[in-house]
Design a protein around this nucleic acid. Structure first.
Lengths: 192, 192
DNA sequence: AAGTATCGATACCGAGAGTAGCGTAAGGGG
DNA sequence: CCCCTTACGCTACTCTCGGTATCGATACTT
């Protein structure tokens, strides 16, 4: 009811559509310089935008990165015949996304920041994780705690490899991850 | 030949044995305030030591944390009858250590810093990860890349849970992790 | 006593997150 | 047309933190 009215435009100068430009600049800057050196000033410069404009749209660097990741990931594609095919395609999709330039570093970086920032942790878990948790719960028919465990294993493993080596996980190891996860989550298996 | 001579003591004032005090202060400060607010100044104050003394012994905050983690973890106990028992006890030991106050936060924090700091990444992977990788390779008779994958899965999963919730993984989920990992690494299994 | 190296204290530098203030641009409605 | 409202760019600023420099005092050896 608030902004759904077709043409109820708010007064004042309309926002220029720079969100997409800022997202692209964020990922490319992180890809080129790494997470720590990708300062807000540099991201703003790469986007051709004033730093204050970024802070008018996002309250903190962390939330900018989370929004950027939401944009980069998009909705998770959950097609596939059986459960096994569905889960393995989900794992491969997450691995592929994390392997895209800048995405893995951005994810690992904001994740690390969240360790010491409870507010950012809430943003990260509700805005990003819940989106895929709910989709997976729906598609797999698994209870919440099982899906959370699944996400911990898949994302945790991929990020740990990324953080330790600086490179995304190679296909052979992603295949190993699938082979490890699948039997545990096969129909009717598991302890709970 | 350098310092092995029994009583070849170097000249000058000997170092006071404050390493243990600094390690304890580091973990307790991180436990109380979180990783980001655990500044070097605060750690020094908690240890009753000047900040400059810390920087005389460790070249950076990251290396201090790595040394602190090395001290907190100690050597991995690898006793156990069969392979399965050996692996499950290893997983539980790592989970327990990460659950100790301050240790998980410190680990996740320094891990995050390593994402943007290649030098710290080298320190982390050679000083900390290699220690347990070599012990596990020796005890399990697995090739390097399999043990690295094992570490990615176990540590990655535990740290992801810690980072997302702020709390270490509960025993039930650690048990699930064991049940997932064991069949994959059973004798003769696996793709490679 | 002389020499050497550590410790504590204070002051400092540089970088980066985030904010304040101001003039200006881009739309609306009278 | 002029006014109102909001967004934008710009500059300058504060604050925190990692890390460094300097100096006098201290501990231990020879």
């Amino acid at each position: 009811m608030s902004r759904a009215s077709t043409s109820a435009r708010p007064p004042g100068r309309p926002r220029s559509g720079v969100n997409a430009v800022v997202f692209a600049a964020t990922l490319s800057t992180i890809d080129e310089l790494g997470y720590a050196r990708a300062t807000v000033d540099r991201i703003a410069a790469a986007a051709g935008v004033a730093k204050t404009t970024i802070y008018r749209r996002w309250p903190s660097k962390g939330e900018l990165i989370v929004d950027c990741l939401l944009d980069a990931f998009g909705p998770i594609p959950l097609e596939g015949a059986g459960r096994a095919e569905l889960m393995s395609s989900a794992v491969r999709w997450i691995a592929a996304k994390i392997g895209e330039p800048g995405v893995g570093d951005a994810f690992a970086g904001v994740f690390s920041d969240a360790v010491s920032d409870p507010a950012l942790r809430v943003v990260l878990s509700t805005r990003l994780q819940d989106r895929y948790r709910l989709a997976l719960q729906d598609a797999l028919g698994e209870p919440e705690h099982r899906v959370l465990f699944f996400i911990d294993v898949v994302v945790g493993t991929l990020l740990h490899r990324m953080g330790m080596t600086g490179e995304p996980m190679v296909d052979a190891d992603v295949a190993a991850l699938v082979e490890m996860v699948l039997p545990y989550f096969a129909d009717g298996a598991g302890p709970t």
